[in-house]
Nucleic acid binder design. Structure first.
Length: 259
DNA sequence: GTAGTGAAAGACATTACATCA
DNA sequence: ATTGATGTAATGTCTTTCACT
């Protein structure tokens, strides 16, 4: 993100990453090995299956991955979105997710609190590692990772979504800090220029008319771009020095706009 | 060629649970 | 033991993209 990007047409935060690798394109469209299916079922008949797997989610990942896998299914809610997911995920997941329902969330006490999985350090580390390589996953990668971590593909997907969001948030904070600094610098610059303008105006008023050089006699120093009088001795005598030509301060290239 | 449509996936906002000080 | 803050898994909705008709 260059400074110019910020300043041309309003502030554009260059958030995010330049391109998502087109995986989006790869993954979709072609039906996967399973056929789309829409299943409506009462939760009753499958409730037992789910409940057996679902204990306290947080017992804390020391349990077998298999258990983890099922627990979260029990914890997850089932909605119309699941129809979509059934297409996306592997067939084994379909079975598990299909039987999930809001009703099945209910604990023994009848409350349907959402159970929340805590990922183990190993799982988190592997996910992080994978995220470093690519911030989005294609279905194959997702499946493989899920299998490796003994999580549902949906959980891997969610983790990546949340991870991307956190990354973006962090970047936004960084950008925000950067813009604040820019703002401060520009304010200072503006103050300085205002002051300089005041001084010049005062000087101009104080000078006799003949002293005021026509513009054509002014010369510009090529190195520092200061404008001085056409005649060296005049310039030497005159304390008045024009400010550099107006330009937008670029903190990337200039430490100060002053010459 | 193009408009309409549906599926898939990601972004985003929000909720809710777990943990810690 | 309680409580508020924080982190984050999970959910719901919206938007975008693409393939198909």
């Amino acid at each position: 993100m260059g400074f110019d990007d910020l300043c041309n047409t309003g502030l554009v935060l260059g958030l995010g990453f330049s391109s998502s690798t087109g995986e989006h394109h790869l993954k979709s469209k072609k039906p996967q090995k399973f056929e789309p299916s829409l299943t409506l079922s009462l939760s009753g008949e499958t409730f037992d299956l789910v409940k057996k797997g679902g204990g306290v989610v947080n017992e804390h990942n020391h349990q077998s991955g298999d258990n983890l896998y099922r627990q979260d299914s029990a914890a997850s809610s089932f909605s119309n979105v699941s129809v979509k997911r059934e297409r996306e995920i592997g067939s084994e997941d379909v079975e598990i997710e299909r039987v999930s329902s809001r009703v099945s969330d209910e604990d023994d006490d009848g409350s349907n609190r959402r159970k929340k999985l805590r990922l183990t350090k190993v799982q988190s580390a592997l996910l992080e590692e994978s995220f470093k390589q690519h911030s989005t996953l294609n279905p194959k990668q997702k499946q493989d990772l899920a299998r490796e971590l003994k999580l549902r593909p949906r959980q891997v997907e969610v983790w990546f979504q949340n991870r991307r969001a956190r990354t973006k948030l962090k970047q936004t904070e960084v950008d925000c800090e950067f813009l604040k600094k820019c703002c401060e610098t520009l304010t200072d610059e503006n103050r300085r220029l205002q002051k300089e303008l005041q001084e010049l105006k005062a000087l101009k008023l104080a000078q006799p008319l003949y002293m005021q050089l026509p513009a054509a006699t002014l010369t510009m120093c090529p190195s520092c771009e200061r404008i001085g009088g056409g005649v060296p001795e005049n310039a030497a005598k005159s304390s008045y020095v024009m400010a550099p030509k107006p330009h937008f301060y670029n903190p990337f290239t200039n430490s100060s706009a002053a010459c």
